[in-house]
């Protein structure tokens, strides 16, 4: 089962290596990973989507907490979670196909970020399954390149994870 784990860490060199190393050597699978600085610039937030049963999840949390640079760890329940991922997709696009792609972009609320004689790059921020559908819609035009960020997540409502 997939879990979304939010980790607040000291914004120090080498922290990411410590965390990814921990996942690797203890055999925890990382599905996606995203890192960025928080409202407090001495703190970074790492959002990891990981795979595992309850035992694995408990061990992941406990082992993460043992790392000195880790300030807080929280696994957020799916229904309390607002998740986003960003994708940039470059597709083949002849002059005749432009209108079709523009209407797909309108319907899916994607942005057209770049255009050339025979290609178009679309940008969409949404949750994972929405992005998967979006990618399928574009596949018939010939996908040249897909770039996806990892999932980032925030709790719904006023609750927040802070140090």
């Amino acid at each position: 089962m997939k879990h979304t784990i939010s980790i607040l860490v000291e914004n120090n060199a080498g922290v990411l290596a410590r965390i990814s190393g921990l996942f690797a050597r203890r055999g925890f699978n990382i599905y996606s990973l995203a890192v960025g600085v928080t409202e407090d610039e001495s703190v970074s937030r790492i959002t990891i989507v990981a795979d595992g049963d309850d035992y694995t999840l408990e061990q992941i949390e406990k082992q993460l907490n043992k790392l000195i640079d880790v300030i807080k760890v929280r696994t957020v329940k799916p229904d309390e979670l607002l998740q986003r991922e960003l994708v940039l997709i470059k597709v083949s696009c002849s002059a005749q196909q432009r209108h079709e792609l523009i209407s797909i972009a309108e319907i899916t609320q994607a942005k057209i970020s770049d255009i050339s004689v025979d290609s178009m790059t679309l940008e969409l921020s949404a949750n994972e399954s929405h992005l998967n559908n979006f990618q399928e819609l574009l596949r018939p035009y010939g996908i040249k390149e897909v770039v996806r960020t990892g999932t980032i997540a925030i709790q719904k409502g006023t609750a927040s994870l802070r140090i």
């Binding site: 060199a13 080498g14 410590r18 190393g21 050597r25």
Partner: peptide, 16 residues
């Protein structure tokens, strides 16, 4: 060495 010893230390410092 901080990288190589990482799995075996409680913590490590590289003083820069």
């Amino acid at each position: 060495i901080t990288g190589a010893a990482e799995p075996f230390v409680k913590h490590s410092f590289l003083v820069k």
